[in-house]
Design a protein around this nucleic acid. Structure first.
Lengths: 228, 228
DNA sequence: TTTGTTCTGGTCACTCTGACCTTTACAGAA
DNA sequence: TTCTGTAAAGGTCAGAGTGACCAGAACAAA
């Protein structure tokens, strides 16, 4: 008699949201648990896997149910299955990580049992969710440096200063504007639209958009997941 | 009621084995299916997840049951869960990939229903296992270039020529011996034992061993998996 | 017109890499 | 013993990429 193994799907959702001082910070939404185990603790949004749905679809659906948002980027993070990770029995969790656009995140649902936290200042979470978020943070920061996922936080067009700000917030370090420009242009990831943004008390920056024809160089044969 | 989802664990096992001409080639062991679906087709070794065992332990156990070997390296590859990947019902497979030492692989079990195949010349496999092996191959080749996993194919001590040969076989391209030496030495991954190998009709090469005190720089917070 | 700001293009030193060359040290043949 | 073939080991050199830094360009506001 193989004892039952519960299969769950959870998602680490990243967004850039303004903090109390108005500065954008990397944030994730959490859900307060309303029953044992870990009743009252905050946890990643998720739930049981659905037999009729792909795992990625389940992750996106749970994301929408808790925040009202749709992900601009969604990728599987890891499958966590240690025997003792849940006191209520054996639970294997397939965890995804997602990026949502900054302008959409402002409209995100927030209520009694759903709240946003700064990604680097989390309380003690239910289960092994602190470990999971830590791993997701590492993957986000690592992937940001060799892949081109930062634009998932932005709209269809953006300035290089906006793109650089995303990198600076996520990587938590200042970047030289001139060198950043050189690297982005060398990667051919971005093309100028020809338009400029006026209104600033300085030289008007160019508007760019991502060049979707250039392949992402990271997912190997599993390119079906990724940018939507 | 939520229909059942079967949770399985499979492993892509890599080893370097001599081909008909005696040259080492990257190979994987496969198991012939003895029942539907895909009866008669070759498939990755694996089976149902065990409720009392960690996923990695299950992967290692299945590996031992089919080949009689123990992995020198074991890492989770991906969790495959598309609804239509098995005609017999919904199956979610947590897939691991493993490296076994070349000298051990020579002793591996091989029988009616277990056989080794060259990794790049596989027949049509059961389920989505061709896709899985392709992804595992991509991960192995990618990771070999920035991490230090090649020594998992070798014994505790080795020459730089042996280490280079592992890279050349896996990456399928010749490497400049002098440049390879420079890069390995710069990485500080390896330390000379002071011994030399005699017998060759040339200058005797130094013996090296891996410096276990130098951390792997790839797994993020999940360093529990990996080299054993 | 002046000033403050950021955008944008550029230089320079340093590091890393691939290509290639030379010397060293052995085994085996002459 | 000497010669020869082979691979180890150590080095040079040009080109690419990066971080640090500088300077002109182009706007809004004073």
């Amino acid at each position: 008699m193989s004892a039952a193994i519960d299969l769950a799907v959870s998602t680490v959702i990243f967004a850039l949201r303004p903090d109390a001082a108005g500065h954008l910070v990397l944030s994730i939404p959490l859900v307060r648990r309303t029953r044992d185990p870990f009743e009252g603790r905050w946890a990643l949004p998720g739930g049981a896997a659905d037999a009729a749905e792909s795992l990625a679809d389940t992750a996106a659906r749970k994301l929408a149910e808790t925040t009202g948002l749709s992900p601009a980027y969604l990728e599987q993070l890891y499958c966590f299955g240690e025997p003792d990770r849940s006191p209520s029995g054996r639970v294997v969790s397939v965890v995804y990580w997602a990026l949502v656009r900054t302008d959409e995140a402002e409209l995100a649902a927030e209520g009694e049992n759903v709240a946003w936290f700064e990604a680097d200042e989390l309380p003690q979470l239910a289960f092994d969710h602190n470990l999971i978020v830590g791993y997701a943070l590492w993957r986000l920061r690592t992937k940001l440096e060799y892949s081109r996922i930062a634009h998932a936080f932005l709209g269809p067009t953006f300035t290089l200063a906006e793109l650089r700000q995303v990198h600076e917030i996520v990587l938590q370090k200042p970047l030289d504007p001139a060198n950043f420009r050189r690297q982005i242009e060398a990667s051919r990831a971005v093309v100028p639209t020809g338009q400029h943004v006026t209104g600033g008390r300085h030289r008007p920056p160019r508007l760019y958009r991502y060049d979707a024809s250039v392949q992402l160089v990271d997912n190997g044969p599993l390119t079906s997941a990724g940018i939507r």
